[in-house]
Amino acid sequence: MHSDTTGSWTPVALSADLPAGTVMPVQIPAGSLALWRTDSGHTAASADRCPHRGMRLSHGFVRGEALSCIYHGWSYAQAGNCLRIPAHPGLVPPETIRVVTHMVEEADGVIWVALGRPEGRPPGLEGLVPLRSLTALANIDAIAAAAGGKTSPQGIVEVASGTGTICLLLSRQDEDRTLIHVLLKGITDQAARIAAVRSTESLRRKAEDIHKKEFAQ
């Protein structure tokens, strides 16, 4: 997480996991968000709750530049305003119907969501190639301990692997859960990348063991 006095950025997903025209649920400390990408490629993050009946918008669908709720098809623009209520085709939805939205930034293959209103931009990750995201039932300390490394100020744990480095960009989901974005530095051939996938599975098992023994209540 990258904080200044007014807010912070948290990495919620890899760009490759959110193709155009799709929506996915992501977690921030305040709860779940619907992270979505329009057909034309813009990313947006909305509260994961349709104000009509409380249905999670991450179960919905993206058509064109709007996100629609799966329950009644109410659709929302990137700015959060309601565009359409299919039960009342003639009605222009009032401005008061809207979902809360968060700022989104996408850089170097990682999608970041703003908590509050951070002044700066999320840190650059030039030279790192995203591999995958996975969730561990472990806190950040347990993951750092399992990796045998320390967390950098950027929230990255580095693990040497052959000629390169596996970088773990960590995002706290709650006390016992961490989202790990795995990024590779200097690991380019297919066999080594597949080996890195397997080593992250091992690392997660180890971190979860440590967490269970040392941190869990």
Binding site: G21, F61, V62, R63, G64, S68, I70, G73, S75, R84, P86, H88, P89, G90
Partner: peptide, 11 residues
């Protein structure tokens, strides 16, 4: 539902 275009509906 996204596999079909949004229908244009007149009330």
């Amino acid at each position: 539902h996204e596999l079909k275009p949004e229908p244009h509906i007149e009330p």
